[in-house]
Design a protein around this nucleic acid. Structure first.
Length: 416
DNA sequence: TCTGGGGTCCTAGGACCC
DNA sequence: TCTGGGGTCCTAGGACCC
């Protein structure tokens, strides 16, 4: 049996931990630049706040119902995620951390209901985060069981095991609630009269294979209780690493854009070194504002290759800036830009080049010193000149909560 | 006025090979 | 009249996830 542990309204719950006044109050968390709603408490959901809705469209709703609004505080959420995951790992041997707020648990040979209830209480007590656990024979069914646990139980646990129970659940859920069926597939399936999860499971396999992808067939098998998606407990190397941002204000100025690309490229390099990986190429993309449809759009991207795979900030930043130079056109205003590093290989498995001009040994030493200092003294204490620390490209984050658990100056003070 | 960021996988079609 | 067959690799685009 597989369990899926999922934090309830995770970001909103994190904001509540050190702010008890928010209990039973509607809470929403916004995306970067305070743009869209990306998390809602149950109370906010009941008020009709939709996922992904632009904040400016619900201004009056926020005001009328006194909804608490927060900018994203990833330092806080990331730290809470680590805490929750480590508790799960202390209770269950095989845990697959699937996302910032979800993990699959190996419940094989365990009295799963009792264990799940215990874990929920422990996580709540130790971190303040409410979680739900769904248990079933496959991952897809565990996802469904989790939805039931979250929405229709008091304890937050649901065991979906017997065939008759599974059948009942499948007939109850709409096909678009299945894990792996998004809005596009749902629309097409409904067009063919496949409305419930049960309809989907009973669809002819060959027809599914022909009209959808192999994933649809896998999904169907999982619904029959045949496990296709195994528990993956080993950490896998990322295949792409991307840093991109929308700008609060459009950027037209080349040197400003260069500064942003330098920041993004350096960020990718830092992430690569953290993963002990090297990349073989770097992609830079720009994008004008899609929402300004009256303006002419431009969304170029270019990929440049490295002669030798690298995770050296200086190399990656200068290559990214070369790429920017090739695609930049001064007649456009840019809303978003990003850097992607790809074709990633393990750092200790790099094919050397015969004509390499760089002294890699000393470069590695420099980079590891920079990483150490920045880890100790704070992010970007040492940076490349092209990143230009003064006048950095900042995000709009007007409702940022303190980093209660990761910054000494933000630790909660109470007077007794 | 204002609209996120970071990933993965699959497939069709083109380019190329013998 | 009549235009092969079998294969690989790469890429862009589309779909999905949180």
């Amino acid at each position: 049996m597989i369990g899926l542990a999922d934090c309830n309204n995770f970001y909103a719950s994190c904001e509540r931990v050190f702010n008890p006044k928010l209990k039973n109050k509607p809470v929403v968390v916004l995306s970067n630049n305070d743009g869209c709603v990306i998390a809602r408490s149950n109370e906010a959901k009941l008020l009709g706040v939709k996922m992904g809705e632009p904040a400016f469209k619900i201004k009056s709703l926020i005001k009328n119902h006194d909804i608490a609004v927060f900018s994203t505080n990833f330092a806080l959420y990331g730290d809470f995620s680590d805490r929750v995951m480590s508790i799960l790992k202390s209770e269950i041997d095989n845990v697959e951390v699937y996302s910032i707020d979800e993990a699959f648990l190996d419940f094989q040979g365990i009295d799963s209901l009792a264990k799940a209830e215990y874990i929920i209480q422990k996580v709540k007590k130790w971190t303040g985060i409410p979680i739900s656990i769904g248990i079933a024979p496959t991952k897809v069914l565990a996802k469904l069981a989790n939805t039931i646990a979250k929405k229709y139980t008091n304890k937050g646990v649901f065991l979906l095991d017997s065939p008759s129970l599974i059948n009942r659940a499948l007939s109850f859920f709409s096909v678009d609630e299945l894990w792996g069926i998004g809005s596009r597939y749902a629309k097409r399936l409904k067009y063919f009269g496949i409305n419930t999860a049960l309809d989907f499971r009973n669809t002819d396999r060959k027809w599914l294979r022909k009209n959808f992808s192999i994933n649809a067939v896998h999904l169907q098998k999982e619904l029959y209780g045949k496990s296709i998606y195994e528990l993956e407990t080993k950490k896998v190397r990322k295949k792409n690493i991307c840093t991109s941002r929308s700008f609060f204000e459009d950027i037209n100025n080349y040197s400003r854009l260069r500064q942003a690309i330098s920041q993004f490229a350096n960020n990718c390099a830092v992430k690569l070194r953290k993963e002990k990986s090297c990349c073989s190429c770097v992609t830079v993309f720009l994008r004008t504002n899609f929402f300004k449809q009256d303006k002419k759009q431009y969304f170029p991207a270019i990929t440049l290759n490295f002669p030798t795979p690298t995770n050296d900030s200086m190399e990656i930043v200068s290559m990214a800036n070369m790429a920017l130079k090739k695609i930049y056109k001064k007649e456009f205003n840019y809303k978003k830009a990003g850097v992607i590093v790809q074709n990633i290989v393990p750092a200790d498995y790099v094919q050397m080049s015969l004509f390499d001009q760089i002294n890699r040994k000393s470069r590695r030493k420099i980079m590891s010193s920079v990483d150490k200092i920045n880890l100790l003294m704070g992010r970007d204490k040492i940076y490349l000149a092209s990143q230009s620390a003064r006048n950095r490209i900042e995000m709009k984050q007007q409702r940022l909560s303190p980093c209660y658990t990761t910054r000494f100056s933000d630790i909660l003070k109470i007077s007794i």
